[in-house]
Structures are given as structure tokens and as C-alpha cells.
Design a protein around this nucleic acid. Structure first.
Lengths: 115, 115
DNA sequence: CCAGATACTTGCAAAATGCAAGTGTCTTTA
DNA sequence: TAAAGACACTTGCATTTTGCAAGTATCTGG
């Protein structure tokens, strides 16, 4: 199950094999802006389906880009956050954001990084 | 047909709506390294199917990221190349490549930019 | 113990992708 | 000038992924 052989040894292709689907980078965006609960992710404006969300969160954890941790606010509940490896994807996300702002009309930064 | 409404005004999401599928960025990689013919793209190691390739090339042209031009080598044949807008995606591609080289074991740069 | 909230899971429909085998159009070669 | 190849797609259908709606499980406060 999910052995997902890489398409080639090309670093671009391998990175895309890991995070190059329709939703993963948006979750990384959300986490990197301080979101951490399942419900928060599911409420992002793009409207990810809950089954896809559960699957992507599991993959992120499995690949070491994110981890579960006990929710600081609600005791007894768990949440997700980026690992250091996951944080290192930030330049990719920022490059995507910058390109969108520069080249796609009507885009706007929606979230602020939590200070 | 292909009206593709954007999922949200977020620049990350909008950019992914445009180039965030399994193949588009690999074509951009190929073009940015000097590939230009249909056959060359179809021979990249990842093995894109020809129907998908045709579809993605058409979308790239439609979105202004690439353009057809008469093949310099073979007269009477056409080829593809990035527009200026398409070239501007290079930082995204390079960020993906760098991350892969830094974090995924066994990745290696396969192509050299044409000088 | 019960109600509500969150975090999933399940079943099925719809869409995207992949594969193999065409088809159309030059271009070369005889 | 006809036939053969090469290239650039297209088509039909199987497989995989995604999306939607509804259901289940667990925890928590009252």
C-alpha cells in the first residue's frame, strides 16, 4: 500500500511526488500561518473535502513534514503542526505566493502570519 | 468547457490552480532546459502519456505561459517555448529543485540548462 | 448519562489520469 | 509522384483520484 515509486530521480519531480497535488501545499500554507486543527483546515476558503483532508494530513505526518501534538488550547485534543522539515518548504510556498500576486489579477494575501 | 473557477483569491491557491497538477511544472522544467518538441517532452524520464501531454501543452499556451513557434531545426514543424510569463516561474521551479536536492535522498540534477 | 462538538470514515458518483492503438500531415526517398 | 517514415497529436476505454453527503467514534461539559 502507498509505496509510491518515484517517477524519476529528478529533484523537481521527486518534490512534486511528495507535495505536488492539489491540496498539500495549501495545508502547508495553513499550518505555516498558524492553523492546526482539522476543523480549521476544513474551513479554509478552498473547501477541501474531509476525506481528502484526513488523507493528506496522514501523508504529511507519514512523510515527516508535519506532526501531531496535544492541542494547547483544548486539553485532550490533538492538533497538527509543521516539523522543521515541513517549515523548510516555506520558500516554495512564498515563491508560489509571490508569483500569484505578481501575475494573477485579483489575488490577495488573505492570511497574516501569526506574530 | 475549461472555465475553471478559482478556488479562492489566495495567490498560492490561484497559482496552484494554474500550474499545480502532476505534470505542468515538469513541462516548464523541460522547456526551461531547452526542450521544445512534443517528442522530447514525451521522452522525459517521468513518462507522461501523450494525451495528457497534448492537453497540458494546450493549456500552457492558452494561459500564456508558453507559445508555439516554428521549429528552428526542422522547417515546417512547430515547437513550444516559454513566454516571458512562463520564464518567470523559474524561481518556483528552482525552489522545488533545491528542496528536493536538500531533503530527498537519491535525487540528482539530470539536465543542464542550455548555455 | 446526555448533548454538542470535533475528527474522522464510508459509500458511491464524478472527474482526472493512464494505456494502447489509431489518424493526419509533412518530408524524405525511390 | 507515390510510398514510407517520423512526428504530433486524437480516440476509446480502464484505472485511479477526487468530491460529496452522510454516518460513526471520542471527548467534554453540564
Amino acid at each position: 500500500m502507498h509505496v509510491k515509486t518515484r517517477r524519476s530521480p529528478c529533484p523537481v519531480a521527486c518534490t512534486l511526488d511528495l507535495i505536488g497535488d492539489k491540496w498539500t501545499l495549501l495545508l502547508i500554507r495553513d499550518m505555516s500561518f498558524g492553523r492546526s486543527h482539522f476543523k480549521e483546515f476544513s474551513q479554509s476558503p478552498e473547501g477541501i473535502a474531509t476525506n481528502i483532508l484526513a488523507d493528506r494530513l496522514a501523508r504529511l505526518v507519514e512523510s515527516g513534514l508535519a506532526e501531531k501534538f496535544p492541542s494547547p488550547e483544548v486539553p485532550g485534543r490533538e492538533a497538527y503542526r509543521l516539523t522543521e522539515k515541513g517549515e523548510s518548504l516555506r520558500p516554495i510556498m512564498m515563491a508560489l505566493a509571490k508569483w500569484g500576486l505578481d501575475h494573477i489579477e485579483g489575488t490577495a494575501a488573505l492570511m497574516k502570519p501569526r506574530g
